[in-house]
């Protein structure tokens, strides 16, 4: 009996194994292959070297000329904006996940569905709508002006890009945290209360550690897409600065496939290392839970 079960299990895994090999692993080999070849498909380090050494002359804040490494600047700006967006998502998303998880099941279901609805409407269109809101003569500024609060210059700044990313990826933060919190045993909270914890220390010492797996997957699901986006920065950043996604897309459109692959390859390696480190630092049980 048992043997037959195992056999079935092995067969059930077969299609996925083939698929994963062909369409997950092999394509990554192609990224590496293109990253280390030139247009004649000869082996070269030039693409990788260009990423780390290409320099640009820019004008600094005080009018002085500076030599900077082009892709390092682009890369660090992407990392910075992605980290800020992730932190903002966490700060905004965590409380709402907590609130939802403690509501009645019916309210829970409704609120979660409402949070998911925006994801069903095309994100390019939604980002487009944010331009209307954040423009200097846009809805937000007209509203502030009508309250005599003055105007804010947001569009075209890094803040506008962060707003766009937070908006697009917030549901990815809320949902995994919520799904972990919804499973938390209420008795634990009561026990903590009985043992003298007030609301905040219950949150800090009981709820937060238990919800950590959700936080980790939420952070991953926000950080990864926001580090590589190229549409949001084009639209809400007024095209004033490049992120790493813009650089890859730009090289692809400029027909420099090999350099595009090189940037992608480096980004991939860095992210895989970062994720491996993150995984090591958090609980093992995290791996399975989204």
């Amino acid at each position: 009996m048992k043997r037959r079960g195992d056999l079935a299990a092995r067969w059930s895994l077969a299609p996925y194994s083939v698929w994963a090999l062909l369409f997950i692993l092999v394509p990554l080999v192609f990224v590496a292959y293109y990253a280390f070849t030139d247009t004649d498909m000869h082996f070269t380090f030039d693409n990788i070297r260009k990423f780390f050494t290409a320099t640009s002359t820019v004008t600094g804040d005080n009018g002085e000329t500076l030599q900077v490494r082009t892709y390092m600047v682009i890369f660090w700006r992407s990392v910075k904006l992605a980290v800020i967006s992730t932190v903002v998502c966490l700060l905004m998303g965590y409380p709402i996940a907590y609130i939802i998880a403690r509501a009645t099941p019916k309210v829970q279901k409704t609120v979660i569905t409402l949070i998911m609805i925006p994801m069903w409407m095309n994100f390019l269109i939604r980002t487009y709508a944010w331009m209307t809101i954040l423009q200097d003569t846009g809805i937000l500024n007209n509203f502030l002006a009508s309250l005599h609060l003055g105007r804010m210059h947001i569009i075209g700044t890094e803040s506008a890009v962060v707003i766009g990313m937070v908006y697009d990826y917030l549901p990815y933060m809320i949902l995994p945290i919520y799904s972990i919190m919804a499973k938390l045993d209420l008795k634990l909270l009561e026990a903590a209360h009985d043992l003298g914890c007030n609301g905040i220390s219950t949150l800090r010492r009981v709820v937060f550690p238990l919800s950590l797996p959700g936080v980790v997957s939420g952070v991953t699901m926000v950080l990864i897409p926001s580090i590589s986006t190229f549409y949001i920065s084009q639209k809400l950043g007024n095209g004033k600065f490049f992120l790493i996604g813009d650089a890859i897309e730009g090289q692809y459109v400029a027909n420099n496939l090999h350099f595009a692959a090189a940037i992608a390859f480096i980004l991939m390696v860095i992210l895989l290392i970062a994720m491996a480190l993150m995984k090591r630092y958090t609980d093992k049980s995290v791996a399975g839970g989204v």
Binding site: L13, A20, F23, I24, L25, V26, P27, L28, F30, V31, Y33, Y34, T220, M221, I224, P225, I227, S228, F230, G245, I248, E249, Y252, L257, A260, A261, A264, L267, M268, L271, L272, M275, A287, G288
Partner: peptide, 26 residues
Amino acid sequence: YDTVTNIPMMNPDIITGISLMLMFVF
């Protein structure tokens, strides 16, 4: 299997897209 399954999630869209495109074209 855990690792392989996580790859498409850990990789930004743009890398998944480019990697598949490169392979299909090749």
